[in-house]
């Protein structure tokens, strides 16, 4: 028995898929920005001298890295309102859940980047009399960012694909629209293939760009 592909359903599906894509991109961009800001705080907390701060931040990181993002999403969407007694619009819930998730990953990437700066660079800055903020701004962070940026970009590309999880709680992103169209047309193979193609055509050039950037940053390092 052979499967007959029915690509004719695609043209009619495309406008709806693109509508979903718009939401996917919006979620991705918002979560990248908020997640990176959170990541900076997470890295600062992880590197804090106060053990209470660094230990609790470490627990947060391990919790969000060690559990499935889908569970975190469901947890924030369904359980948080019950516990806190506050209603959140679904867009807000997914932004909160995904931000908490990628914030842990960005945070670790930023911490690793900062810690990769050789100790003697920091000491040289110290004995030149630079204050702590100056030391970070002019010596540590510019070097750390060369290490952090490629990692952060590839985390962001993963995030872009992982936003498809939000379709499970009824947020009308690209994946959600693809699933709805699949049931409507009885053509999941065709529709999902097209959806995958849309994800790919955005993610792949970003991956290539990251790789080029990584090589270029590696060249100017030493």
């Amino acid at each position: 028995m052979s499967y007959e592909w029915a690509w004719r359903v695609v043209p009619r599906a495309l406008p709806v898929l693109f509508q979903g894509l718009r939401l996917t991109l919006l979620v991705t961009v918002v979560v990248i920005i908020l997640g990176f800001l959170l990541g900076i705080l997470v890295a600062a907390g992880r590197l804090a001298r106060n053990p209470l701060i660094s230990k609790s931040v470490a627990m947060y990181i391990e919790f969000f890295r060690g559990t499935p993002a889908l569970v975190q999403l469901v947890w924030v969407y369904y359980c948080l309102p019950i516990i806190l007694g506050l209603e959140m619009p679904s867009f807000a819930s997914i932004v909160v859940a995904l931000t908490l998730n990628v914030g842990a990953f960005y945070g670790e990437a930023i911490r690793a980047g900062i810690q990769a700066i050789p100790r003697d660079q920091v000491e040289a800055a110290e004995i030149l009399g630079l204050s702590y903020p100056d030391k970070m701004r002019f010596v540590v962070l510019p070097q750390a960012f060369r290490i952090i940026i490629p990692v952060a970009l590839s985390l962001s590309i993963s995030l872009f694909k992982d936003t498809s999880l939000v379709s499970t709680i009824g947020v009308a992103d690209l994946m959600y629209q693809a699933r709805v169209l699949s049931t409507e047309t009885y053509r999941p193979m065709e529709i999902l293939t097209v959806a995958a193609f849309i994800y790919f055509i955005i993610a792949f050039p970003c991956t290539l760009a990251t790789r080029v950037l990584e090589l270029r940053l590696a060249r100017v390092r030493h």
């Binding site: 660079q121 070097q143 060369r146 100017v220 030493h222």
Partner: peptide, 8 residues
Amino acid sequence: QFTMFPHL
């Protein structure tokens, strides 16, 4: 060790 800041 060489401690010139490499990015400057």
